[in-house]
Design a protein around this nucleic acid. Structure first.
Lengths: 239, 239
DNA sequence: AAACTATAATTTGTCAGACAACTAATAAAC
DNA sequence: GTTTATTAGTTGTCTGACAAATTATAGTTT
């Protein structure tokens, strides 16, 4: 639980930055450290990560300021949040269809993606996300059966495996997401009610727990236009 | 400029991580701090940023390890770097063709993208990037003429406006990049030698200077497969 | 000899305190 | 009223220390 000061601190600090108006100054580091219950050194480590993401800006002698990018937190790629949450923030009502939960065994690609042995028991969750009664995304999650059994999902499953894992208390730290564009295969085109070959934005992500184990491999296919993903990139110091 | 230990440290550490084979352990923090001439606290702040980018992995009691697999043209989206720099880092040769530099005036969309008045003087740079003698990306930069004149680019321009601005000493802080997927228009398909309607990964980015002014609006079109863009996403706390 | 166990050494995680460098507001001097 | 010192506040960095976790080592037992 709270045995990882840095992790708790990172979520606390993210919440604080999120609710702070752009341009406003944060508390000074000593005060903030005391308020959040960590040392100033630990606080500064966390601040560096947010500074690298462009969410805050620090000026020696002056203070730490929230940079005008509340939008970056809302729909930015820096934070992994469920599609439901994102869609709601944009003002779209979402629903789920074509939900299927299967027990399968790991083939070569699944074993590689999840870093587990061939033939291991897996759970695969597939569904289509609708916004305004139109299909907008096709999602496929593959997890070790030890992480999610085929019967674990509740009857009122809303469509977000991530939200379910979090609500269950699973500790999840980060995800590595590959961004690409592909043409829709017939498998994806059919549930999305589009033509085979139509353009899709494609995410392939691995979700990690604190031990570094991969607990979920997800494939996401987005019909362009409904979601806008953006990211604040730091200019590299030309190594 | 070398009066900022953290900045120098970040480049030094990046170089060290880069030249360290995947999976290998780094020196312990006390030794590394001494070797790089900073305190352990400062070193740890820098390490956090690289850990957040997924370049290293730290295990208490064990050590800090370089996480591997920089295959193909694999680039973390957290840092903005030119394709040239990226390719050079991986040891790939890139070339430029179809280079055109035009002086234009701001139409409505350009004015909005650059946050400048209608009719302002602009410079537009367009070119095709080749890797291994194949076209892999189409790039279009639009800048205020005050930031880049049509005749400012050197004759041996390699294709990266970003690199040129940096080499000229311009101060640039961050970029806001929108990620999408589109079908190739005929304008883009022709120089890329693909069919109209083929799938492209599309970035639309605004480049900011320290004052928050937009100095460049760039459109990038990537043929899928040649580049792999990834991002490490922090798990949100659900708000 | 092999396997298990307790101990020690190493490494990262966190904390506390201190001082320097820088900024901005305030008081003093002209 | 303007300029100059002064002062308080903030971030940047350093030193040292201890806790927690891992790994290596020596010892013991089987």
């Amino acid at each position: 639980m709270a045995n990882f000061p840095f992790q708790r601190l990172q979520t606390d600090l993210a919440a604080l930055i999120e609710k702070t108006p752009a341009g406003q100054r944060l508390l000074s580091e000593p005060k903030l450290a005391q308020k959040l219950g960590v040392s100033r050194a630990t606080l500064r480590e966390a601040m560096r990560t947010f500074e690298a993401q462009g969410l805050i800006r620090r000026r020696q002698g002056s203070g730490t300021f929230v940079v005008g990018a509340v939008q970056a937190l809302d729909s930015g790629l820096e934070v992994l949040e469920s599609l439901e949450t994102l869609a709601q923030r944009i003002g779209l009502e979402v629903s789920v269809s074509n939900l299927s939960v299967d027990s399968i065994v790991a083939d070569e690609s699944a074993a590689a993606a999840l870093d587990i042995p061939l033939g291991a028991a897996l759970t695969r969750v597939r569904r289509v996300i609708h916004a305004e009664n139109r299909p907008v995304a096709y999602l496929e999650d593959t997890l070790p059966a030890s992480a999610l059994g085929a019967n674990d999902l509740p009857k009122d499953f809303h469509g977000s495996v991530l939200d379910f894992l979090l609500s269950r208390g699973d500790l999840l730290t980060s995800s590595r997401t590959n961004v690409s564009a592909i043409a829709a295969s017939s498998d994806v085109a059919k549930p999305l009610q589009i033509q085979r070959g139509d353009v899709l934005l494609h995410f392939s992500a691995q979700l990690f727990n604190p031990e570094g184990k991969i607990v979920d491999h997800s494939l996401s296919y987005f019909i362009p236009g409904y979601f806008r993903f953006h990211i604040v990139r730091r200019v590299g110091n030309g190594g």
